[in-house]
């Protein structure tokens, strides 16, 4: 008498193809398959599709991938190098640039206050 039902048997196929079934379960599987054409056909189909997946040829990276990556990394580093002084407070405007800015701001504030 088969102890396992069809769906239980088919649930063991992955463990079976990976040789991970304990002997007791393997024995039940074999007993079922010996008398069940449907599950045997399902196992053949399962193995065939797994073989087809495993035999897919690997995709090779395009030849310029490494070059593109390095280009992006350098671009990113340059951007960071340009922004970093502002973020860390290490960037100082020269006095000849600060004076006109401060004067312009003061005049703008004065005009605003007079209105």
């Amino acid at each position: 008498m088969n102890e396992l039902g069809h769906s239980e048997v088919q649930g063991l196929y992955s463990a079976y193809v990976e040789h991970e079934l304990p002997v007791g379960e393997l024995e039940k599987l074999v007993e079922h398959l010996e008398s069940c054409d449907g599950c045997t056909v399902a196992l053949e189909r399962f193995e065939a599709s797994l073989d087809a997946v495993r035999q897919l040829p690997r995709e090779r990276a395009p030849a310029n991938l490494a070059r593109q990556v390095l280009r992006r990394v350098r671009h990113r580093n340059r951007r960071r190098a340009a922004v970093l002084p502002y973020l860390t407070g290490q960037f100082h405007l020269p006095a000849e640039a600060i004076i006109p800015i401060v004067l312009a701001a003061a005049i703008a504030l004065l005009i605003h206050a007079l209105q």
Partner: peptide, 15 residues
């Protein structure tokens, strides 16, 4: 894997 077997069907087995 079971879904793939279902999608690929018997043609793959024949192949």
């Amino acid at each position: 894997r079971a879904a793939l077997a279902e999608i690929l069907g018997p043609n793959d087995q024949e192949g």
